[in-house]
């Protein structure tokens, strides 16, 4: 059975979607990912869609589904690498995927996940609160 591979990188999972997905494959990915999050106690999921040349409402729904399910399982989801034409089309279609975190590429997505993990584990949240609205977009030069 055709499957989209899920890679484990430390405490994160990385999915690179490179095929033109039919709906069943998308549903299967959703199931596989949630299982894998629990099995590997992953804290974050990166979904790289830079190779996708369209995202329609079904794939959009699948991405939103993964994001909210992983949240319940205590893992953050970041969708990375959406092409400009795809983004414009999605907006025109009427989907803004409000609940989903995004990043320009895998590197940035990884950083976003790491920063938000650090933030949530940090006992002293004062700094985070002060900069609440800038959450997780900080470019911290120590990393």
């Amino acid at each position: 059975m055709e499957r989209i591979p899920i890679l484990k990188l430390g405490s994160f999972l990385l999915v690179t979607i490179q095929v033109d997905m039919h709906d069943e494959l998308a549903v299967r990915l959703q199931d596989d990912l949630t299982t894998k999050i629990v099995d590997s106690s992953a804290r974050g999921v990166l979904i790289d869609i830079s190779a996708l040349d369209i995202v329609d409402s079904f794939i959009g729904r699948m991405l939103a589904g993964i994001a909210s399910m992983s949240k319940i399982l205590d893992a953050q989801t970041v969708v990375v690498g959406m092409q400009p034409a795809v983004a414009i089309t999605l907006v025109e279609l009427g989907l803004s995927l409000d609940g989903i975190k995004t990043a320009l590429n895998v590197d940035r997505g990884m950083k976003l996940l790491r920063d938000s993990l650090e933030l949530s584990e940090d006992e002293n949240l004062a700094a985070g609160e002060a900069n609440g609205e800038f959450e997780s977009i900080h470019a911290s030069d120590e990393n």
Partner: peptide, 10 residues
């Protein structure tokens, strides 16, 4: 192109 393909998919 992207718009038309997306509409066709829907």
């Amino acid at each position: 192109q992207t718009k038309v393909i997306t509409a066709a998919s829907e």
